[in-house]
Structures are given as structure tokens and as C-alpha cells.
Amino acid sequence: MITAERKPFEEIKEMVKPYSKLLVVGCGTCVAECAAGGEKEVALLASALRMEARMENRVVEIDEMTLDRQCVYEFIDQLTETVDNYDAILSLGCGAGVQAVSDVFPDMTVLPALNTTFLGETKAPGVWMENCRGCGDCKLHIFGAICPVARCAKGLFNGPCGGSKDKRCEVHPDTPCAWHMIIERLEKKGRLEQLNNIYPPVDWSTGQGKGPRKIEREDQMI
């Protein structure tokens, strides 16, 4: 799941200041689960913006809408009929959603209300944790299904670094040391020898750094 957090209100406020008719658009998928951009957050932000404007003696018209998914054309299309009524769209989608909406309506100003943060897991109610970097070359089978790229502060492939204390990462003492977990898990399974090999330098070319990645599946295309 993609996680995100709402931008500081101050930043959003400045962003939307020039516009008097605003459509706040949420996304019902990932960002709804991490309580950043679902229907409820849309309502809250819209209400907050209305009040803020009122306090500054401005009148703004703010409408709300939440799409099932903001990164797919078919869902974005639900905005087509009404989009011209607004000066700008404030999107509570992830970065992908914001851009997708903007691509569908290139003449519309689309503003991001969220900071997209990471790919992660819902650890407990209200706790989300990064566990994947989308590196494009998954090696979890070697590391006992714990990703050293995403979960070790230094991304070591031949860890641990030696700085961890009480099984905690030296960088974030509230985070468990990924390498500690890898070793414990493999040890339990009697497969520690999996780590004996020196893991060679990684081919990062499957990850970021070459411009936007793209997946094309002939069989899925119409």
C-alpha cells in the first residue's frame, strides 16, 4: 500500500489561496486506509479550509468528492462533468493520483494536499511501516522475507552493521534492526548459511535512476 500524510495546513493554505472555487478530491484506496486522503479527511480539510478563509474574510466555495481510485482514468472520469466549475482541484491522492488527475485535465490546476511517503504495511491501527522500496529486483527469498533495502537504514546486503543495540537500529532506536530480524528468522529455520555468500553489489538499474519506470503487458492491453 502507498502511504501518505497530509501536508502541513500552512502549506496547503498558501497553495489554495489564489483560488475561490475549489474541488477537494480524495481517493478511496491506499491513502484512505492510512487515513490521509479518504472521504473523511476530505471533509475535514474542506471544512478547515472554509473556516480558515472565513477567518481571513474571504469566501471560498469548496466542494468535496472522493473517487474510488485516483490513479485510474475510469475513476477520474467521474470528475469530467463538474471539473469546469472549479478554479483548482486540491487532490488528496498520492503523487500518482495527483499527476493522473492532472494528466486527464491538463488545463486544470491540480494541487497536492498530501506528501506521499512510502510503500508499506499497516502494522497496527494507526501505525504504518515502510517495508518495500520498489527496487524492481526482489530478493526477499534470501533474506527471510525481510527487505534489507527498505528496512536497514544503510541498505546493507551483508549486514548487520554492528551499530545495533538491543535489537534496535542505531539510526532509529524505535525501529527493530532489520538484520537482526533476518538473522534470527533464518537461524530459527536453520538456514543461516544462506547468508554465507557474499552478496555482490546490487544492480540498481531495475530501481530508480533511469527516469520513470514502466510496465507493459501485451496480454493485458486491449
Binding site: 495546513f9 475535514l44 478547515a48 473556516m51 477567518m55
Partner: peptide
């Protein structure tokens, strides 16, 4: 928290 952000 939200109110404080708005300035209330």
C-alpha cells in the same frame, strides 16, 4: 490539532 492549524 486541526483547529490550531486553522488558527482557532
Amino acid at each position: 490539532k486541526l483547529m490550531e492549524e486553522i488558527g482557532l
